[in-house]
Design a protein around this nucleic acid. Sequence first.
DNA 1: TCCTTAGATTGACATTGGTCAATGTATTGA
DNA 2: TCAATACATTGACCAATGTCAATCTAAGGA
Lengths: 119, 119
Amino acid sequence: MTFTRTLPLTDISQADACSSSLARSAIAPDHADSLARSLKALADPARLRIISIVAAHADAEACVCDLTDQLTLSQPTISHHLKVLVDAGFLTRAKRGTWSYYSLVPGSLDSVAGVLAAV
Amino acid sequence: MTFTRTLPLTDISQADACSSSLARSAIAPDHADSLARSLKALADPARLRIISIVAAHADAEACVCDLTDQLTLSQPTISHHLKVLVDAGFLTRAKRGTWSYYSLVPGSLDSVAGVLAAV
DNA sequence: TCCTTAGATTGACATTGGTCAATGTATTGA
DNA sequence: TCAATACATTGACCAATGTCAATCTAAGGA
């Protein structure tokens, strides 16, 4: 325990960003909490597929009907997953007429990826 | 829905790697499953702190006693989290005498980070 | 051989989380 | 105004998960 590696495992989630640098020491408990929350939002097959489907669309935007077509899940279940992703800051919703269009929040995935890669 | 973005959201988890490129289409369901499994293993505050503590140690190696010192969790709970991380391929265990030393699997975190960043 | 120590395993418990049926809410069109 | 469409919300249910107390296993030391 004499030498300590540089360790920028800092939380950069969009919701509750905390920009303090955690280099040279272990991650702080509250940072671990918020990073875990972000990862939990991603750690579901249906939600990963949703993100992927949205990203694969033109303009990175998709309506719920696009998702019900491709996922074998009920419409309420898909709405639930969408809410989780919006609350976590990975998607945004834009309502136009009767349709709700979901799109990726730029940089939100990269933030999480950056924290993981930095360990 | 005419233009489809390049989308290399492929699974590169260590356990069940599948190297097919998923560019230009949404992620396949089974790839979403295994990526979700990897993310689930990371999506816990205690496990993130464990990874961070191991990474912060000299030689990126720590014994269980180092973890019980810093985490306010029982020893069985910490052993449980360590098992989850080993099973997911993020840590390896080396037993020397009475002590168990855990270390990071090189590249395992970067694999997950790379998949996320590629979306 | 016996005791102590480090750590893993088991079993039980409460909480969280994913899912769907049923229902609610806007918006559009007739 | 009424019916249909697109989506959200509620409530309930079951499965998965995090936690700890108790116990087990193995390695040293006296």
